[in-house]
Amino acid sequence: MIASPEGHQRRALVASPTGPARDAAHALASAWDWCAVEEAEIVVALGGDGFMLQTLHTMLAGRGAPRPVFGMNLGTVGFLMNEWRPQGLDERLARARPFQVTPLTMTATGVDGRTHTSPAINEVSLLRETRQTAKLEVTVNDRVVLPELACDGILVATPAGSTAYNLSAQGPILPLGSALIALTPISPFRPRRWRGAILPDKTRVSLRVLEPDKRPVSAVADQHEIRDVARVDIAMDRTRELTLLFDPEHALDDRITAEQFAA
Rank of each mutant, 00 (worst) to 15 (best):
Q100T: 13
Q100S: 14
V101G: 09
V101A: 13
V101N: 10
T102Q: 09
P103L: 12
P103K: 10
T105K: 07
M106I: 02
T107M: 14
T107G: 08
T107L: 13
T107C: 15
T107V: 15
T107K: 14
T107F: 05
A108V: 03
A108H: 04
A108R: 02
A108F: 04
T109A: 09
T109R: 14
G110Y: 08
V111C: 14
V111W: 06
V111D: 08
V111N: 10
D112Y: 11
D112Q: 06
G113W: 09
G113Y: 12
G113M: 10
R114F: 08
T115A: 12
T115Q: 14
T115G: 07
H116F: 15
H116M: 13
H116T: 15
T117C: 11
T117G: 09
T117D: 12
S118H: 06
P119K: 11
P119F: 11
A120W: 04
I121R: 10
E123F: 08
V124T: 05
V124N: 03
S125R: 12
L126E: 07
L126D: 05
L127S: 13
L127M: 09
L127Y: 04
E129P: 01
T130N: 05
Q132S: 03
Q132Y: 02
T133P: 01
T133M: 09
T133H: 04
K135M: 00
K135W: 02
K135G: 00
E137W: 00
E137V: 01
E137R: 01
E137Y: 00
